[in-house]
Amino acid sequence: MTARDDRALGELYDRHGATLYSLAVAIARERADAEEIVADALGQAWRTASQFDPGRGSVGAWLATITRSRALDLVRARGRRARALARAAGESGEGLSAPLAAADAPERRVERQEARQLVGRSLAELPEPQRRVIELAYFTGLTQTEIAAELREPLGTVKTRMRAGMEKLRDSLARLLPREGP
């Protein structure tokens, strides 16, 4: 790597590192694992940067997708999913995502804080059962069938909740977040 490479990757890290690390902690639930996940994910992004297609989404979304996938791989590889699940289930009502009222750790970037608040608000507007199935899918990587078994709900109910919740989420985020430039 040249000094310029360092600078480019450093900028990516400064911009997205905290979000990716938070995501990795939320999925893997171990800080040491989260560090490994973020380093792996950014390394993978770095090596495959030419595959990034800006037409399919933002850099942040791309990095988050890679990070989530690495985190779920690691959790599965260590057979820790059962444990993560048990803990998730234990946090009934609270959910896996950040409670809206909770004060975030000091954020370096106001915009990220605002984006977090918008997403948090959109999630908080969902009925709890809808939010729960979405969070289980995203943060634990469970399929609808697995979620139904976990929650002891009929599969059809889980499908309906997930779809309804995602439609609301899509609509409220589209309404809240401007599509064009600043």
């Binding site: 790597m1 490479d5 360092d6 990757l9 450093g10 890290y13 400064d14 590192g17 905290a18 979000t19 990716l20 690390y21 938070s22 995501l23 902690v25 939320a26 999925i27 800080r31 989260a34 560090e35 973020v38 380093a39 792996d40 950014l42 390394g43 770095w46 989404g57 933002s58 942040g60 979304a61 988050a64 997708t65 990070t67 989530r68 995502s97 950040a98 409670p99 909770a102 975030d104 750790a105 000091p106 954020e107 990220r112 984006a115 977090r116 997403v119 948090g120 959109s122 999630l123 979405i134 969070e135 995203y138 943060f139 995602m166 989420l169 899509r170 985020l173």
Partner: peptide, 26 residues
């Protein structure tokens, strides 16, 4: 919408050494 869920993870502050580790591994 799904990608935005990454922002819903509770904020956790990365340890100070993580940036250097990322650069080192890259």
């Amino acid at each position: 919408a799904a990608a935005a869920l990454a922002l819903a993870a509770p904020a956790a502050a990365p340890p100070p050494g993580l940036r250097e580790r990322v650069l080192r591994e890259a």
